[in-house]
Amino acid sequence: MRLAKKVALITGGARGIGLATVKLFAKEGATVHVCDLNFDEDFAIDGVVRHRLDVTDFANWQTVVQDIIHQDGRIDILFNNAGTVLSYAGIADISIEDWHKVIAINQTGPFYGMKAVLPYMRAVGRGSIINTSSIWGIAGAAGVAAYTASKAAVRHMSKNAALTYVADGIRVNSIHPGIIQTPMIDAQDPQITDAVVSITPMKRLGRPEEIAYGALFLASDESSYMTGAELVIDGGYTAP
């Protein structure tokens, strides 16, 4: 039970990487509060509480966080995992509307999450925050302008928070998945997926569970000497 008696908040937890992490954290003893906009009707996991959360709405964040504090008294782990690609267009072609949507979900969402949770973590002098970035928060990619910009911002926002709140006993790290078999990837043009897999040294898609175990390590006390770090799980994509 690597997360025994810990309270975790996970966004984007209804499917993909988030769902795999919800299941793993619950299995490892955490009380898990899973947040998303839409849940399947049969979504039910022992030890897991559902919340409807729009990560782009700070008032919604405050309500959900206060509900968790009222119920469990604290939040030990925040996993800002919700994200979207939405547009594959470059800077010249992406619509202004799509740009703002992607930035709102991928970049402002984790900012709101940290802003809502940090006061409670600071009050007890501990906490682990994990922010999902991407391989494209480290390496460049053609097109996908808003996605790459937002994920690079998450990488450095995590470092900023790590250095700002280290004296409060709070650790902040980013996790950088490669191409993972999720509903978001399943929905994209297969040619894009095949192209990324072809230049991934392991020559395959990652599994959501492989990212979940990385998040588990960062959430647990096993990573107690890690903050401001980047955990890359990408099949070797960023190695060259």
Rank of each mutant, 00 (worst) to 15 (best):
I103H: 08
Y120A: 10
T108E: 10
G127Q: 00
A92R: 15
A139S: 13
G113V: 15
W99D: 01
Y120P: 02
I138P: 08
S95T: 14
T132G: 02
G90P: 04
A141E: 02
G90M: 04
L118M: 15
P110G: 13
A116D: 01
G143A: 02
A139W: 02
A139M: 11
G125R: 12
N131V: 11
A141Q: 06
Y112V: 10
S87E: 00
F111N: 01
A146K: 05
K101Q: 13
L86P: 00
R122S: 15
G143H: 00
S133F: 09
A116G: 01
Y120N: 11
M121S: 06
A92N: 07
I138L: 15
A92I: 05
V124N: 08
S87K: 00
G140Q: 07
S95R: 11
W99N: 07
P119D: 03
K101I: 11
R126E: 13
I135V: 15
A146C: 06
H100C: 04
I135L: 04
A142D: 09
S95P: 07
L86F: 03
Y88C: 01
L86K: 05
N106A: 03
N106I: 00
W99R: 06
I129E: 04
M114F: 05
I96K: 14
V102Q: 05
Y112W: 14
R122Y: 05
S87I: 04
K115H: 09
I94F: 04
A116Y: 05
Y112E: 05
A104G: 13
S87R: 02
K101C: 00
W136F: 14
G127D: 02
